[in-house]
């Protein structure tokens, strides 16, 4: 399988990139790592006239702590998150989720930004960002804007980004006494999730101050389980409270039956994973700083 013909540009600056997109954004595809785009080009599901390779842009890769936020550059590779030892205490859900994405070789090249922009309902980063209430920073010729994770994912493979925009970074709020967990059911390494659940909690004493829950592969996009999140706010993480949140999250899921299993099966795995995730996250938040 081979891509259909296309033109190719590899801008060396962000300014050049957004300028190209201003002119030809409608017929162009941005390429970061290419780990989702190239397979689509090979299948000829995607036949853009132009590929704009942003892979060489400087200063867009890496994770850093700034102003109470974690800034994840759009070109940060999955492996950079996976192997970042600081994150294991600072924001453990990030390396945990990264670990289960695709396979080691794809993690060496695929990017966090590319993943969220691809907006695959089976993608992992979207749910994580929803659980973390991250902000997405987009740049175009006309300037920069910030999009809330909850507004970013609009449907299967559809985001709030305009064709002339490039995602430059993801900002993740950092709070004390907070931690998360990512549970993923996959059939083998390299498989997308049958179901996965991202959970993040912020503790206030023995109570949950705030909870974030993102769901993978159980809807036409990554879902935020708002009712479940709300049900936990201000509550102690008792078995009952956790079970209730798990029930609400399962109810919020919109799974479809396919070769991976029935809708009931997937819904129940959401329940199981919300329970497991909350328990792990609470323990981590308590154990951590």
């Amino acid at each position: 399988m081979f891509p259909a013909a296309f033109d190719y540009r590899a801008p060396s600056s962000l300014a050049e990139a957004v300028d190209i997109l201003r002119q030809r954004g409608e017929e162009a595809k941005v390429m970061a790592g290419g780990q989702s785009l190239i397979p689509l080009l090979k299948l000829r599901f995607s036949q853009p006239a132009l590929v704009v390779d942003i892979g060489r842009l400087p200063n867009l890769a890496g994770v850093e702590r700034k102003d109470g936020h974690l800034r994840v550059g759009a070109l940060t590779r999955h492996v950079q998150v996976e192997s970042n030892t600081d994150l294991r205490t600072l924001c453990p859900i990030l390396p945990e989720a990264a670990h289960w994405i695709a396979d080691p070789l794809i993690r060496n090249q695929g990017t966090v930004g590319g993943s969220v922009c691809h907006a695959d309902p089976q993608g992992d980063w979207g749910s994580v960002m929803l659980a973390l209430d991250a902000d997405f920073v987009a740049r175009s010729e006309s300037g920069e804007r910030t999009i809330k994770a909850a507004d970013f994912f609009q449907g299967p493979f559809t985001t709030a980004l305009r064709p002339d925009e490039v995602l430059t970074e993801i900002r993740i709020p950092l709070a004390a006494h907070s931690a998360g967990a990512y549970n993923k059911l996959e059939r083998k390494v390299g498989d997308f999730a049958t179901v996965a659940v991202a959970v993040q909690v912020e503790m206030n004493g023995d109570k949950i101050a705030k909870a974030g829950i993102g769901l993978t592969s159980v809807g036409d996009r990554n879902l935020k389980a708002r009712d479940a999140e709300k049900s936990l706010a201000g509550k102690q993480p008792t078995d009952e409270a956790i079970a209730e949140a798990a029930r609400l999250a399962a109810a919020a899921a919109e799974p479809k039956a396919d070769v991976r299993g029935s809708a009931e099966f997937k819904r129940d795995i959401v329940r199981v994973f919300v329970q497991r995730g909350l328990k792990t996250a609470v323990a981590r938040a308590r154990g951590g700083q």
Partner: peptide
């Protein structure tokens, strides 16, 4: 023997987590 089939057998027998 995939997880969904085993899950269905377990749940039908009333076994859950």
């Amino acid at each position: 023997v995939t997880p969904d089939k085993v899950w269905a057998a377990l749940r039908a027998a009333g076994v859950s987590e």
